[in-house]
Amino acid sequence: MSGPLLKVENLTKHYPLGTGFLKKTIPVIRAVEDVSFSVEAGETFCIVGESGCGKSTVARLLMRLVAPTAGRVLIDGTDIAGLRQHALRAWRRRMQMVFQDPYSSLNPRLTTGQIITEPVENFERLSRRQRQALAADLLRKVGMSPEMIHRLPSELSGGQRQRLGIARALALEPSLIIADEAVSALDVSVQAQILNLLMDLQQQMGIAFVFISHDLRVVEHIAHRVAVMYLGRIVELAPCEALFAKPVHPYTEALIAAAPVPDPTRVRLEVLVEGEVPSPINPPSGCAFHPRCPLAVERCRIEVPPLVPMADGRVVACHVRAPATEIPGSAVRSNSSAHATLRMIRS
């Protein structure tokens, strides 16, 4: 079909904190608020942000592990957000997930071979010979020996368990894999092996990835496009090279400036951001980032900024850096004065 493989429109998830009394209004946790993006076949789309910004909730919404409060999730034009369980089951073959913890996401009672073939047997019957051949083939694809087919997860290292999780996700030959912090629990050397494995598999099989991470080094290595989330909303979405070369949203600048730099002589920008992330139960009015933003103006405190397309193909939600409209007499500063809050330092 023409169009993107995955299209997300105005995805929202609220968690109520109680049942209320006499139908009174009850507070809710606004985990995800009005998120929209698309993913092309064979693309790696990364979502980054601080802990608690809603990244993992988006992953679970895409997989329909939780039901959305509002919005649509379209796979090849079909809205899976509204499907009932029986109709949704057929779409499970198209999308799989690699979880953050490579141990707790695996059944400790099953062998490596059983873990890999179990998803397939949910849809079709396999003979013993077919199961062994499938498990051995997928173990080779993820860089493991077929001789490990009878081992339990407890007998594998962390990197091997994560490879096993990837092999399980590949068993149904999906078009889309959601990877939620898939390398965050691994050593740096093992991280590189897993990332290179994912990129090789993508080239061989044309799989699209939605890769969720807080590690900007990982994102810069693997992503085609990057969405930056803050308190449940996307604040900037751009091609990977453009985002890291010239971030536009103040929060994106702060994230990149806070990332460790291995070269002690490298000069980078320092962005002064103070305070803590606000509570999703009672988010600030207007732009959620304005209490911490050094560029905030009065308009930021009143009006939620829309995502505005820019000339280089990115979209940004910021009244200062990407104003949708110019308001006569407003206190919005120009880009040159906005960048004056940054100063060059040595890492």
Rank of each mutant, 00 (worst) to 15 (best):
K141L: 14
A135I: 06
R151N: 08
A136C: 10
A136Y: 09
T117D: 06
E118R: 01
A133E: 15
K141P: 03
A136H: 09
A133Q: 15
L126E: 00
L126F: 05
Q130A: 15
A133V: 04
E121Y: 00
S127Q: 01
N122I: 02
K141M: 12
L134M: 14
I149C: 13
A135F: 04
Q130S: 10
I116D: 03
F123Y: 15
P146I: 07
A136I: 10
A135W: 05
S127W: 01
N122L: 13
R140Y: 03
G143N: 12
D137M: 13
L134E: 02
L138Y: 02
V120D: 10
D137S: 14
R128C: 01
M144I: 11
P119A: 14
E124I: 01
P119H: 12
E124G: 06
N122R: 12
H150Y: 05
R128F: 02
R129Y: 00
R140S: 11
L134T: 10
R129F: 00
M144Y: 08
A135Y: 04
E147G: 14
L138K: 01
Q130F: 04
E147K: 14
M144L: 15
A136T: 09
M148R: 12
R125M: 07
S127V: 00
R151W: 05
E124T: 14
R140H: 11
P146W: 08
I116P: 04
R125W: 05
R128S: 13
